[in-house]
């Protein structure tokens, strides 16, 4: 059973490696959105430090939604999704593998880019570290919850915008815990509490969302 999930992950990674343009788009989107904020509100380092964590987090949410709209769409178009659904393996493992693969492709590069953006926003080293840790815990949540939305909106007209409408409200706890972990570090009160809550939310999403995504996928493909 685990091998099925690993196969799904390996397949998606291979496809991503062959089509680099596809997933690099959302990474560049992330960088550009974050870089627009200082241009819009001024370059005062104190203010940038204050808004930095939130801006990075919001940009991460948007970038994840941008790439999530295609999570199942390509497989659906060429028919391979139906073949995977017909296989005797549980659909839950398919959606779990898809979400994890999405995290590996989109989340990990985000973690590598973030420290550079943190420097742009005049964050001290410790805060950058916590920002990366919060994204490390938080981005899998985005992939998991987003996979539900991607399955629900599969093949609908205006799917991308619709996905944003459906999933963004559900992202709120991750955004709050993630961004306030960094704020707490900046204020010197320690980030453990926020990170623990973020991790608890991750565990809950890990338990629930693959099942809901699997049910949604069955509804959408039938």
């Amino acid at each position: 059973m685990l091998r099925f999930t690993l196969t799904v992950i390996r397949r998606d990674l291979l496809l991503a490696a062959r089509r680099r343009g596809d997933w690099l788009t959302s990474q560049f989107f992330f960088v550009m959105v974050v870089s627009m904020f200082p241009l819009g509100i001024g370059a005062d380092p104190n203010m940038l430090r204050m808004i930095g964590p939130g801006v990075v987090w919001v940009a991460a949410l948007l970038a994840s939604l941008l790439s999530l709209s295609r999570l199942f769409a390509d497989d659906h178009r060429d028919g391979s999704l139906e073949q995977m659904l017909l296989s005797p393996e549980p659909t839950v493992l398919l959606t779990l593998g898809k979400a994890l693969a999405h995290w590996l492709i989109y989340g990990i590069p985000l973690l590598i880019i973030t420290p550079v953006l943190g420097i742009q926003f005049a964050l001290p080293g410790e805060a950058i570290l916590i920002l990366v840790v919060s994204l490390l815990i938080g981005t899998p949540i985005l992939s998991l919850l987003g996979s539900v939305g991607a399955a629900l909106t599969l093949g609908l007209r205006g799917g991308g915008v619709l996905l944003t409408l459906l999933i963004l409200p559900l992202y709120v706890p991750a955004l709050i815990f993630g961004a306030s972990a960094v704020d707490a570090t900046l204020a010197g009160t320690g980030a453990e509490a926020h990170l623990s809550l973020l991790a608890a939310f991750l565990v809950m999403c890990l338990l629930i969302s693959p099942w809901v995504a699997a049910a949604a996928l069955r509804v959408s493909v039938d």
């Binding site: 539900v148 629900l152 409200p169 559900l170 706890p173 629930i208 809901v212 049910a215 959408s220």
Partner: peptide, 14 residues
């Protein structure tokens, strides 16, 4: 019907 119901439920958990 079913998609809306699933979204309602995951919203209710959230």
């Amino acid at each position: 019907d079913k998609a809306g119901a699933l979204l309602t439920l995951i919203g209710a958990v959230n």
